[in-house]
């Protein structure tokens, strides 16, 4: 085999080793976060602070996006359904799309962009300015003090944000469908209530969003905690968070949909 071929194969090998190493490290990291679970009950204030910066500050973008998504669903849904004379099912179409797919997925993507990247940058900067090392030298476990609360805040926030997204979206669809295009108000709601299933659609969607929150929190904090502690490293880690989280959300969404809704 010639020399470039050799280098090529070796680089594949190194890539695989680094990937395995990274995955193993991320797994151990997650395990350590879970070992610090009790910090939630011992020091709830830490969680509250993070719920504020991770959850509350994301509400506005979620509500605005949810409203516009709901409105466009109302418009497009109406235009499509009216061709079959089935505009009475508009409420059902809007609600089912929102609760099953668009709510969880779009909320997760917005959360990644708004909160996930911020988490990575924050932790990465703490590492670059030796704050994490300082915590360790003060005999404070940084995973316990700064990582665990952020992780659980993310896991808790995403389902709540998803629920808000869906509710606002339904009202957005209502605004366009009922107020502007003249679908009957009662038909809008009753078709929704008849067709949307509490367990399959609503709880299924919320379970999805819980899983998304879990993975986004994990990816974002892992990227920040193990980034190269300089500006190039932090920017790389932030990009990696957004890219990896988004891909994870899309692929997990398919897997979860296949698992939950196919049976």
């Amino acid at each position: 085999m010639n020399w470039t071929g050799f280098i090529f194969v070796a680089s594949i090998g190194r890539w695989a080793i680094e990937l395995t190493h990274g995955l193993g490290r991320a797994g151990l990291f997650l395990g350590e976060v879970f070992l610090q679970f009790d910090v939630l009950f011992r020091r709830p204030r830490l969680l509250i602070q993070q719920l504020y910066s991770v959850g509350v500050l994301t509400v506005l973008i979620i509500i605005l996006s949810g409203f516009f998504v709901g409105m466009v669903l109302g418009l497009q849904g109406y235009n499509t359904l009216v061709g079959f004379g089935a505009e009475s099912s508009l409420g059902l179409a809007v609600a089912k799309l929102l609760t099953r797919e668009l709510g969880p997925v779009l909320t997760a993507l917005l959360f990644t962009g708004r909160a996930g990247s911020a988490l990575t940058a924050e932790i990465g900067l703490m590492k670059a300015t030796e704050q994490i090392a300082a915590l360790e030298m003060m005999a404070v476990n940084p995973v316990r003090r700064i990582i665990a609360s952020r992780f659980f805040a993310a896991v808790l926030s995403v389902p709540l944000l998803t629920a808000m997204f869906c509710v606002v979206g339904v009202f957005g669809g209502h605004l366009v469908g009922v107020e502007m295009l003249g679908v009957d108000n009662g038909v809008f709601w009753s078709s929704m209530q008849q067709g949307v299933d509490l367990y399959d659609d609503i709880f299924g969607g919320l379970i999805k969003s819980l899983v998304f929150g879990f993975f986004i929190g994990w990816i974002a904090l892992n990227q920040g905690y193990f980034c190269q502690p300089n500006s190039a490293g932090i920017s790389r880690a932030t990009t990696a968070t957004v890219v990896t989280s988004s891909l994870a959300v899309f692929s997990l969404n398919y897997c979860l949909t296949a698992l939950m809704f196919s049976a």
Binding site: M164, D201, I202
Partner: peptide
């Protein structure tokens, strides 16, 4: 900190109310 705690409380409540709304008015 008090103000941010209030916001967190509102956030959690709004989330729970949203879930309840989905369950009652959107779902069956």
């Amino acid at each position: 900190t008090k103000l941010s705690e209030l916001f967190v409380g509102v956030f959690l409540l709004a989330g729970v109310v949203s879930v309840a709304f989905l369950a009652m008015n959107v779902g069956n």
